[in-house]
């Protein structure tokens, strides 16, 4: 069951969105998030919705894939919607039954907050769906490199992310193996109260940690054996380049903020 987790959630097809420079995608995702927060009233979300539909279409990622990224959030979404719906008591009353009442303000708040969450998740997962993890770490390193002057370890951070990504499947496999070994000797991971299940995890976590440390030691030797000595003087296999498409993406996404503010005013 643990084997199902894939490395990141990259969806490998060729599309104009996939071809964008990872730095462009990281910066524009931030711009997009800002735009989502500027949205006022339901009309204010219309430009965001259109923009989102456009890039999903362009990216070639199937819509069902996108919806999958919302699944882990379903409980949070339901909570946001229900709480806003029932606990805002200002405004015109639409419905009342004993102590439950739904007001116009409550309904619009509930819709807006849920939509905002959905937009945020869809937009950011579109970035991870269209950018391979390696490109993402390369992009982050390049974006953070000006901060090196004030002592920010940009290269080290990117290297750590790459290694973390690389070892996720390895450690999952190992956890799986340890779990089976413990189960074979009568350990029970799936029944009992929350505390007893948590306690059952200790014999899983201790060997996993020990082996992670051993792996770290081995990896350090292997990296040094291949002449690794930090970010100084390194050349790169992947060189990031801005192309025409990146300029177009910047202009379109840049326009999203003023358009959103304007649409919000119309209401």
């Amino acid at each position: 069951m643990l084997r199902d987790i894939t490395l990141g959630q990259y969806y490998p097809v060729d599309s104009p969105i996939h071809r964008l420079d990872p730095r462009t995608k990281i910066v524009l995702t931030i711009v997009y998030i800002v735009a989502v927060f500027f949205g006022k009233g339901l009309l204010g979300y219309l430009p965001t919705l259109l923009f989102l539909l456009l890039i999903i279409k362009l990216s070639g990622v199937p819509f069902t894939m996108m919806l999958k990224s919302l699944r882990p959030l379903r409980i949070l979404l339901i909570f946001t919607f229900v709480l806003n719906l029932f606990f805002i008591s200002s405004g015109e009353v639409l419905f009342r039954w004993r102590f439950i009442q739904i007001t116009k303000d409550g309904l619009s708040h509930a819709l807006r907050f849920s939509l905002r969450l959905i937009f945020l998740v869809l937009g950011t997962s579109l970035m991870t769906l269209t950018t391979p993890p390696v490109a993402l770490t390369d992009g982050l390193e390049s974006l953070c490199s000006p901060l090196k002057k004030i002592g920010f370890p940009a290269h080290e951070m990117a290297m750590m992310m790459t290694i973390a990504l690389r070892f996720i499947p390895t450690l999952i496999e190992e956890a799986d193996k340890i779990m089976k070994a413990q189960s074979a000797r009568g350990a029970d991971f799936s029944s009992g109260s929350v505390t007893s299940r948590a306690r059952a995890m200790i014999p899983l976590l201790v060997p996993l940690f020990i082996s992670a440390f051993r792996r770290a030691g081995d990896l350090a030797f292997a990296m040094e054996a291949r002449c690794y000595r930090g970010g100084e003087g390194r050349t790169r296999l992947h060189i990031l380049k801005f192309r025409k498409g990146d300029a177009v993406a910047f202009v379109i996404t840049g326009l999203l903020i003023p358009v959103t503010i304007f649409a919000g005013r119309l209401l």
Binding site: L7, P132, P133, V134, T162, I163, L165, R166, L219, A222, M223, R226, C227, Y228, R229, R234, T235, R236, L237, H238
Partner: peptide, 16 residues
């Protein structure tokens, strides 16, 4: 193995 793709891993030593 350091990288998440075979090609990038072989490149690791060259980059260094």
């Amino acid at each position: 193995i350091v990288a998440t793709v075979v090609k990038d891993d072989v490149a690791f030593g060259l980059e260094n």
